[in-house]
Computed example of a mutant assay.
Amino acid sequence: MITNLASGQRVFTSNTFLVEGERTVVVDAGNEFDVVTQIRQHVSDIDALVLTHTHRDHVGNLDAITDAFGVDVWGFDPEFEGVDYAIADDEWVQLGDAEYRALHTPGHKDDHLCFYAPDAGVLFAGDLVFANGGFGRTDLAEGDRSVLIESVDRLLDTVDSDLAAMHTGHGPSVTTNPYHDIELAAHAARMG
């Protein structure tokens, strides 16, 4: 079961997903809301915090989660303060009950990861792509439009066209033909 803990929050935050199962994890910590209370409304404990990337809106609640649950934080770059362990490109990680392939997808930020579970047909896209063909900003530090386009193309080459669900860093999750939204993002990024 995947729940967006940030749903309905009216603050500067990313989406924050609770992925329940054999290895219950939170994907992205979010920012400026009581994420610990939100987690405890669903589960008594979690096994890890996994980051798509380390922009402030995705890690602002990192300390609150680690203090409350005593969990390790996993992300692409353990040089970033608060990230305990690295997830390498093409490494497989368990989120909930599914195995996800980590895809290093820079362009929005150098340490950006997407997580794709081919068997479950689920993608955590972070801030690489969004619903309706949106894509991550490239005007921030470490942003690079041409690199982002390469990352979106890699995503298209990796995920199956019958992808069932795409959970994004901002906005709604996509459960109706999310592959098409990735195609739209690839086109829109080239046009911008």
Rank of each mutant, 00 (worst) to 15 (best):
T3R: 15
D28W: 01
D28M: 05
D90A: 15
I46C: 11
S14E: 01
F17T: 01
N15T: 06
T105V: 12
A29W: 02
V43A: 09
F33M: 07
L148Q: 03
G8P: 08
D84V: 06
Y179M: 06
A64L: 09
G30W: 01
V73I: 05
V50I: 11
P172T: 12
Y116T: 01
R137G: 14
I65H: 04
V147Y: 00
H55A: 00
Q38N: 04
I182T: 10
D90F: 14
E22S: 14
H112S: 12
T54I: 00
A6S: 12
F33Q: 07
R10N: 14
Q9Y: 03
T16I: 02
G60K: 04
P78H: 07
R101M: 14
L128H: 10
R190P: 09
H187T: 15
T13Y: 02
A98F: 13
S146H: 13
L5Q: 00
V19T: 07
G171Q: 15
E81A: 14
D34P: 04
M191Y: 11
T175K: 13
H180M: 14
L184V: 13
V35D: 06
Y179V: 06
V73W: 09
T3Q: 11
R145W: 08
D119G: 11
R145E: 12
H170K: 15
A102I: 01
E142W: 05
A64C: 08
S146G: 11
V152M: 11
L163S: 03
